[in-house]
Amino acid sequence: MNLHFASPDVGARTLEIVNEMKALEGPLLPILHEVQAEFGYIPQEALPVIARALNLSRAEVHGVVTFYHDYRDHPTGRHVLKLCRAEACQSMGGMALEDKVKKLLGIDFHQTTLDGAVTLEPVYCLGLCSTAPAAMLDGEVHGRLDDTAIAELVAGVRL
């Protein structure tokens, strides 16, 4: 596993991001998005910087970060595959698809393959009920997935 140490400039870079965005109305979520885009996750070191700049307690920032599952406290693999597990997708065979993906990758949800290629996440929901079962690979949506289509997606990320 790649041990990922936040570089010493996390605080400085976070402060730059905060200063750029703190004038927004409701700046916390956009700031956290930007921090995650910058580092690939939300480093612990970023939290006190954000809290101080926004005049929030560190607990409040922590609460927001942990409430939204999209924010991560550790880096992911090179690709992130999110499988929709909500009702419509389940009713269209999403569970069987999940099993298939887990077997193909050899990992469970919230885990990353040993080669660092892909992280598997559940998601509730992608809003693609009409084209269920659905998945999102690196921000791109895929619907009407069957065994062949999901195997192709998985093969693509393992290259």
């Binding site: 992608l126 693609l128 084209t131 895929h142 619907g143 009407r144």
Partner: peptide
């Protein structure tokens, strides 16, 4: 739209 993109 997202649904159309999801199906190619």
């Amino acid at each position: 739209d997202a649904a159309s993109l999801a199906v190619g």
